[in-house]
Computed example of a mutant assay.
Amino acid sequence: MTSPVLQKPSILKESYVLLDNVSWEQLEQLDISLAGTDARLSYLDGILEIMSPLSDDHEDSKSTLSTLLETYMRAKKIRFYIRGSATLGKKENNTRSEPDESYNLGIKKPIPDLVLEITVSSGGINKLEIYKRLGVAEVWFWEDGLLSVYVLESGEYQQINQSNLLPDLDLELLAKYSRMSDQFDAVNNYTELILTDK
């Protein structure tokens, strides 16, 4: 068995390291070794990304965006189930990821319908390829207060301007409130707006 090879380290807003030539068995061993460190692992075809514990900025952005989205779905009586950052992936398709947040709409399913990813550093593993192999219907990337939405159509992700899962959701408005510095005010103001818009 060959040893994992360091491909390239990067220190940006958050630190991650890429290891090349990592077997699934080595991934499982590293997962055990890193338990309790808050490191997050993503894996695709033998390449392993280890992300350092997430920053306060990352967690604040994730919490604000997910709370706003959940507020919208509750106000519009859309049945949803929070899947959280549960590990997704299979040895059979050489993938693993821990989304920042994920949801099933309508009913609970083994794979989330919607994944949220908060991007604070560029590079790393192609998350869309991981989610494509898993069959996730939509992936939303939030970066610097802007949302990019990808929908899985005919086996490939296409960037779109409006969610297929939530076609009445104003994504620009959601992104605007996600950029507010105070989470409490952002959620309260957004709630008032969507409740008066019913």
Rank of each mutant, 00 (worst) to 15 (best):
H58N: 13
L12V: 05
I194R: 08
V151T: 14
K62T: 04
K127P: 06
L166D: 03
E138M: 04
G135Y: 02
S181G: 10
F141H: 08
E172G: 09
P53I: 07
K132A: 11
I125T: 11
S3V: 06
E92V: 15
L65F: 15
E153L: 00
L195S: 08
Y81M: 12
K13E: 13
V149D: 01
K127H: 13
K76W: 14
E129L: 09
E143Y: 09
K62V: 05
I130E: 03
E49D: 02
M73R: 08
E28N: 13
L152A: 13
K176C: 00
Q183Y: 00
D57R: 12
Q158S: 05
E25W: 12
L68I: 08
A35G: 01
K132V: 07
I194G: 08
R40V: 07
V187K: 04
D31T: 14
S121E: 15
V5K: 12
F80A: 10
L6V: 11
V136I: 15
R79I: 14
E59C: 05
I130W: 03
F184R: 07
K90N: 09
I82S: 12
E25R: 12
R179C: 05
I50C: 01
D45M: 12
I50W: 06
Y131R: 08
R83I: 06
L18W: 13
I47V: 15
L27F: 01
N161C: 01
P110G: 02
A86K: 14
L12N: 08
W140F: 07
W142S: 11
E117H: 10
D38N: 04
K77E: 08
L114I: 09
R96L: 13
E70I: 00
T95P: 02
L116A: 10
Q159N: 05
D185W: 06
T67R: 14
G89D: 14
L30G: 03
A137Y: 06
L169D: 09
I160W: 06
N126G: 03
L193N: 04
V17L: 07
D100Y: 15
Q183M: 03
Y177R: 02
Y16V: 12
D31M: 01
N161K: 13
T196D: 11
L41I: 10
L193E: 00
